[in-house]
Measured scan of single mutants.
Amino acid sequence: DESNKPILLPNESQSFERSVQLLDQIPSYDTHKIAVLYVGEGQSNSELAILSNEHGSYRYTEFLTGLGRLIELKDCQPDKVYLGGLDVCGEDGQFTYCWHDDIMQAVFHIATLMPTKDVDKHRCDKKRHLGNDFVSIVYNDSGEDFKLGTIKGQFNFVHVIVTPLDYECNLVSLQCRKDMEGLVDTSVAKIVSDRNLPFVARQMALHANMASQVHHSRSNPTDIYPSKWIARLRHIKRLRQRICEEAAYSNPSLPLVHPPSHSKAPAQTPAEPTPGYEVGQRKRLISSVEDFTE
């Protein structure tokens, strides 16, 4: 099969070098950035008060330690540790928490760990991170309901609301924008112990962030949302095809390698009803078989 044979790379090609550099910018793992907010007593309706908090309760602090690993920003190499735009020179604080497994990295933009500057009256330095995160974990210690939209931002799609209760338990629920209701189930609340709260809140936030990324990708319907490693695979396959075309153009005697095509017509299947918005969006999480067989 010609399409699977190794090909020689061009010795000097600026377009090839640019493509390789672009490939280096696509990590081999999925990345997520999640905002974390603490809401104190009497702050449920005040964005400024929430963003001005420099610490929270003892249970909130224990919750943070379970979310991930504490890292010092100045020691991080952005090409190895995903920071979601946090500055490593102290502009966004000294520490944050991050978490990773074999296929993804997540960083938490924690408002109480970011510096509260006197010259920044409206807390814009914090909002440029927190307001651009799709998902926020809100530790609501106010005793009042927290409403979506209290923290203004164009991309605040989903809130994971943590409400501490007695007996070391917590109520965990989801809020989302109306255009996200087909992807996020907000109907079920959970009672979770303090011990298990970081794991549950983190998983709910990661799932909500993946759904938000799919939702946000609708602005470019021709580019369905893939995982990062599938995006790398697609980029490599496009690069291979372009090299083959350039080689055939410079030397017409060489065969032009095309991806294999299936001449056999697909079997006719009964027509199915058109899937609704929710089903269609969830299918976009699934990769096409052509990603692996071309």
Rank of each mutant, 00 (worst) to 15 (best):
D79H: 06
T163G: 01
H122M: 12
R128T: 09
G66L: 01
T65A: 11
F146L: 05
E245M: 11
K147C: 10
R18E: 15
G68N: 03
A111V: 04
H32D: 01
P221Y: 05
M180H: 02
L256C: 15
T61N: 13
E181K: 06
N251Q: 13
D185V: 02
E54R: 04
L148C: 15
Q77G: 12
T269F: 09
D223Y: 11
C169L: 03
C169S: 13
S288E: 13
V107C: 07
R234D: 14
V138H: 00
Q21S: 10
I243G: 08
E47S: 02
L206N: 00
D133S: 08
K117S: 13
K74I: 05
D102A: 09
E72P: 09
Q213S: 06
H262L: 09
I191P: 03
K147T: 10
S212D: 00
L113Q: 05
D102H: 08
C176S: 04
D125Y: 13
P270E: 08
S217N: 06
A35S: 07
L206F: 07
K74M: 04
K5V: 15
I224W: 06
K74A: 09
V214S: 03
K127I: 14
R242G: 10
A208Q: 01
L70A: 05
E272N: 10
T186S: 08
I110T: 04
R238T: 13
I191M: 11
N170K: 01
F134E: 01
L22N: 08
T61R: 15
P27N: 06
D223W: 06
Q14I: 10
D179A: 07
K127D: 05
S57A: 01
E72V: 08
L67V: 01
C244P: 12
T61K: 15
S46M: 03
F16K: 04
P226E: 10
V214I: 13
A205T: 01
A189F: 11
A208K: 01
A189R: 10
I224F: 12
I50F: 03
R238M: 12
D179V: 05
L70K: 10
P78K: 12
F108M: 02
H100C: 13
A111S: 09
S263C: 07
D223P: 06
A205N: 00
V257K: 14
S28A: 12
H109S: 03
N140C: 00
E91V: 06
A265V: 12
V135M: 00
L233Y: 10
S250N: 13
S193I: 01
K126H: 04
W229I: 04
R69D: 15
H159F: 15
E168V: 01
G276M: 11
R123T: 14
Q105A: 14
T274S: 10
A231V: 06
E2L: 12
L174I: 05
R218Q: 12
N11D: 14
G93V: 11
F146P: 01
S28R: 09
F146E: 00
D185L: 02
Y97L: 11
E272H: 12
P275F: 10
E246C: 08
P164E: 00
G66K: 03
P221G: 05
H258A: 14
I161V: 14
G40K: 03
S250M: 12
S3P: 12
S263P: 11
D166Y: 01
T31P: 03
Y167D: 06
D133C: 07
Q21H: 09
G66E: 03
L206S: 01
E91G: 13
L8Y: 12
E168T: 03
G149C: 08
Y277G: 15
A265Q: 12
L64N: 00
I224V: 11
V39C: 04
P266D: 10
R232H: 09
G280E: 10
H159I: 10
